[in-house]
């Protein structure tokens, strides 16, 4: 949607189009097949029969970052892995979303004190939309995180002018990457 991004005035017509686009986006959030540690097993449980993430249109894990909208970071990110996580995020197409799953990626978790090579929270590397704490979080918690993300996507302005804080935040990240 390139040139039109956040340039149109914020009126009722543009708002209605935004709502329609947002509904389309939030109903097919495709996550990336990306497992790091223990939380990845709970993430797999969410995709499997009992919890069935497909109900929310997010049940098709994509094997490549270029086809996926959502990266769930499930498990401790260490110094060696952080470079790769960053690169995976950079390879994803906009709009892209990040869920930090588990205590380690939310802020260090059990490895916060003595972990000489763990990154204390993946938000030091990439911007995070939703934090799901727990060690590991129960599948219900991850599902709740995805529902919250759907709400967030649905509210997003696509064509209308974004509010000031949102724009600044994006400009900051664009400057780095």
């Amino acid at each position: 949607m390139g040139l039109l991004n956040n340039t149109l005035p914020d009126n009722k017509l543009v708002g209605a189009v935004d709502t329609a686009v947002g509904w389309g986006r939030k109903s097919s959030v495709w996550p990336m097949t990306f497992g790091i540690a223990c939380c990845a097993i709970e993430m797999m449980a969410v995709f499997a029969a009992t919890f069935d993430l497909d109900r929310f249109g997010a049940g098709i894990p994509r094997a490549t970052p270029r086809q996926s909208d959502l990266i769930i970071v499930p498990g401790t990110v260490n110094a060696k892995m952080a470079v790769r996580v960053r690169r995976l995020y950079d390879q994803m197409a906009e709009p892209r979303y990040v869920i930090a799953m588990g205590a380690c990626v939310c802020g260090g978790g059990p490895y916060v004190k003595w972990g000489y090579n763990t990154v204390k929270g993946v938000h030091k590397i990439i911007p995070v939309d939703i934090f799901v704490p727990g060690c590991p979080p129960r599948p219900e918690a991850l599902m709740d995180g995805i529902l919250k993300l759907r709400e967030k996507i649905g509210r997003e302005a696509v064509f209308a002018r974004r509010n000031e804080a949102n724009t600044q935040m994006n400009a900051k990240y664009d400057a780095v990457s």
Binding site: A37, N78, Y111, W114, G115, Y116
Partner: peptide
């Protein structure tokens, strides 16, 4: 290997 090294022995 080493992409999931979590310092278990140091801990």
């Amino acid at each position: 290997i080493g992409y999931l090294h979590r310092c278990a022995e140091k801990i």
